[in-house]
Design a binder for these strands. Structure first.
Lengths: 215, 215
DNA sequence: GTCTATATGTTGATAGAC
DNA sequence: GTCTATCAACATATAGAC
């Protein structure tokens, strides 16, 4: 109301600097939180990994929790996008293949986000807002209904739709969260793109060849 | 060499007290570590949860890492026991059903041990000794070979045996590590024995009915 | 074996010069 | 917007009386 215009609207360069530094902080933070959790991660570590002094981290974020909750929001968005492949009008074989591929792709390309969320789930989801919890439940319900619909139409065999969804999530998630174990299992130091491809075809084989009757 | 006998061999009551207090500490520690990880867990919290003063925790364990590594050893033992159901002489349907049931049972009854190990894997397994890593690899190899054997005999369909093993582990593990998500998915506050039973039959249905040809 | 007190170092967060 | 200096709170771990 009384502030001057130059005070209210930030300059372009200021905004760019803010955007760049926030991104640096968030990128370092998700990696650290994903490995050591909220309490285990030190602001000083985040600062060092971002190449910024610790005080600058506090310039951009009010406190540790503010960084953490911003990251949760980002992961939930990515989570939703993979699920968008499951639509009732698609044939189950196509929809589920696409979903499995997309989810594995997310596990490969956003491994630290995935681990970060896993860490938050191990904690019991204490940092999720009520709204975010509700959103996750609604999304789950929505897709469980699509799967149930396919079962009613006889397009896939009848099993418990909730546990069916859990299987999809568990198998694809594993390759991000426990990539150490997965890599050791295939006798490599790190999982490669071709390991992910083998994972994809194995999951599709086992889940789809059983559940979806041949055309 | 110079110590008196009474100094070398502890009395029965001393041993019992030690055993009881160590057990209390380990039980509290596994729950806390499983939720907050190594760096996130405070010795004071462990002490409080055990009902002992902090200094007593240090009387029984040299430091935080000593508690942590003792717990890892315990989890690996439990892990092995579930796998023992997979033997080459058994029919795949029987062996795999037993394994899935045993692993889910472990997830239900030892959820915090399971989460604890998941946390350690998220960290990348930094606390595992070289010996423990080798043991895990050998065990994995051994069971992958059993599965490969069944495939060669035509007893189960041919898929990648490593990724097949991963699927078994991922689906059963999920119900312990992400029980929050699983409970929300089935629209309950906590998973019950009957939820675990539905999980078991769904996993068995999807994995076995596809992979194991009907008798 | 139990427990209070404490040494020694870290941590989250802020003040305030530039 | 950047950064040094600093603080109060809290951490691990130990000393030593009981």
């Amino acid at each position: 109301m009384t502030g001057k215009k130059t005070k209210l609207s930030k300059s372009n360069s200021e905004q760019r600097i803010r955007a760049r530094n926030e991104a640096k902080i968030l990128k370092s933070a998700v990696e650290l939180f994903s490995r050591k959790g909220f309490d285990g991660t030190r602001i000083a570590e985040i600062a060092e990994a971002s190449g910024l002094p610790k005080a600058n981290v506090y310039y951009y974020f009010a406190n540790k929790a503010a960084i953490y909750t911003r990251l949760i929001e980002g992961v939930l968005t990515g989570w939703d996008r993979a699920l968008e492949h499951i639509t009732p009008d698609r044939e189950p074989r196509e929809a589920l293949s696409l979903y499995i591929a997309a989810k594995l792709d997310y596990s490969r390309k956003h491994a630290s986000e995935s681990r970060f969320f896993a860490n938050e789930m191990l904690r019991g989801g204490k940092f999720l807002s009520r709204q975010q919890k509700r959103h996750m439940k609604e999304i789950t319900r929505e897709y469980a209904r699509v799967i149930e619909g396919w079962m009613e139409e006889g397009k896939i065999v009848r099993v418990d739709p909730n546990h069916f969804l859990i299987m999809l999530w568990a198998t694809t998630q594993f390759y991000a969260d426990f990539s150490t174990v997965a890599a050791a299992t295939v006798e490599k130091k790190h999982l490669t793109a071709s390991d992910f491809e083998t994972a994809r075809s194995t999951i599709v084989d086992i889940i789809l060849n059983n559940c979806v009757p041949p055309r």
